[in-house]
Design a protein around this nucleic acid. Structure first.
Lengths: 131, 131
DNA sequence: GTTTTTGCAAAGTATTTGCAAATGG
DNA sequence: CCATTTGCAAATACTTTGCAAAAAC
């Protein structure tokens, strides 16, 4: 069977993810973690990000705007993706989890999860007219 | 500047998308359209699907579960993605567009659009215990 | 010691692009 | 004709994987 063994690399990846709130891509994590582990490989980063997501310790964000992003904050919240600077921002909004119950009303299958993404121009790009 | 010219291939792609409701991938469209245009290239299919999406004539669905899918139904509705058979289904549910206004309440940027995907096991996979 | 994880490189999947020829207006 | 679109092939972007060595237990 597949027992889980400790790895320094995996811990460092998770630690780094908890310390930043910019929802980095695998490559961004890789670039940064190399300062501490210069020999780590991109494959190891991908493997551990996938593993941590499966374990539910982190969340994989599919943005539709470039590579997947990762988030150490697994609490229910939604994201905004800026089509100009490609930033992924946490939305500060009331709970909308009732949409799951609303979806279940006419649905004859099992809804396990859902994801909500908002798209547009972020405050910074809008103000600096980079849009 | 970039004026739009008619193309048989583009029309055939759009027509096919309007005739099916399985939210096909670019490759699925390609496979099927080859029956009518045996010489069409996959690149042409990708180019036209991207162009039609930009024009708003069709919608690109990012599922996070394999390649992008395409939908000729551009009216506001949400989708369900089965993690077993990878089907993409239309959700039959009440309008939830107020989540955009709810999101805008504390947000200082421009929200142009949003997407909501539900994930789980579809009725068919659940009944046939393929899950 | 045995199993899991790693680093490396090669392969895989999805998509985009350069270019000469074909088509549309 | 001139601009756009096509087919083709090559290139790109992102991610996964096979394998021998290293690390974990």
């Amino acid at each position: 069977m597949s027992n889980l063994k400790y790895s320094r690399q995996r811990e460092a990846i998770k630690k780094q993810l908890m310390q930043r709130n910019d929802h980095p891509t695998a490559d961004m994590v890789y670039t940064d973690i190399r300062k501490e582990y210069p020999n780590i490989s991109l494959g190891t980063v991908y493997r551990n990000l996938a593993l941590l997501s499966e374990l539910g310790e982190i969340k994989r964000l599919v943005t539709g705007d470039g590579p997947d992003r990762f988030d150490a904050d697994t609490s229910p919240h939604n994201h905004f993706i800026c089509r100009k600077c490609h930033a992924v921002l946490d939305m500060d909004m009331e709970d909308i989890s009732e949409i799951k119950e609303r979806a279940e009303q006419n649905f004859h299958g099992v809804i396990e999860s859902y994801s909500v993404n908002f798209y547009g121009i972020c405050e910074h790009c809008h103000q600096t007219k980079l849009s």
